[in-house]
Computed example of a mutant assay.
Amino acid sequence: MKALIQRVSQASVQVNQQSVGAIEHGLLVLVGVEKGDNKTCADKLLHKLLHYRVFSDDDGKMNRNVQQVDGGLLLVSQFTLAADTGRGLRPSFSRAAPPDEGERLFHYLVEEANKAWPNVATGEFGANMQVSLINDGPVTFLLEV
């Protein structure tokens, strides 16, 4: 699994001009599910999301995680993260999990995140989503598990 995380001061997702998820400060997480990913991968990713230290402490150093700053998680499915861009000028999605597998694992990740942390919002799997954010920093990292 891959996750592109962005530290945000706010982020939201709309589908058909309706808000489906929003957070104030926290992490916008674009999640890509690849072939061969499983629940163990999702569990490891969730652990990283909740404990990865990308928020500043009192000295301005990245020493705090999303839980320590009482931030939100906005989880958004993003199959294009699984693209193979190594050859040519058009991405290949042969590494991406089939839609039913991707949806199952994404929903599992969301379910587990909701058990572990009270401030979780999501987009809508497979929908055409409009994502708005204010990247704080900017701070962006690619996590792979």
Rank of each mutant, 00 (worst) to 15 (best):
S9D: 10
S9F: 03
S9T: 15
S12G: 13
V13C: 06
Q14M: 15
Q18R: 15
V20L: 02
G21F: 05
G21R: 05
I23F: 04
I23N: 05
I23P: 03
E24F: 08
L27M: 03
V29K: 00
V29M: 00
L30N: 02
K35N: 15
N38W: 06
N38A: 11
T40Y: 11
T40D: 14
C41H: 15
H47P: 01
K48S: 10
L49P: 07
L49E: 00
L50R: 03
V54I: 15
F55C: 09
F55H: 04
S56C: 12
S56N: 13
D58T: 11
D58I: 11
D58L: 10
G60T: 06
G60H: 10
Q67K: 15
V69S: 07
G72A: 03
G72E: 00
G72N: 03
L73N: 01
L74H: 04
L75P: 02
S77G: 03
S77T: 00
Q78M: 02
T80P: 09
A83T: 09
D84G: 09
D84F: 10
G86D: 05
G88C: 04
L89C: 10
S92F: 07
S92Q: 07
S92R: 10
S92L: 08
F93G: 07
S94W: 12
S94G: 12
A96P: 06
A97F: 05
A97R: 06
D100H: 12
R104N: 10
V110N: 00
V110Y: 01
E112H: 14
A113H: 03
A113V: 01
K115W: 08
K115F: 12
P118V: 08
P118Y: 09
N119L: 13
N119K: 15
V120S: 03
V120K: 00
G123D: 05
G123P: 09
G126N: 06
M129I: 11
S132G: 14
G137L: 07
P138L: 08
F141P: 01
L142F: 15
L142A: 15
L142E: 15
L143I: 12
E144P: 10
V145P: 00
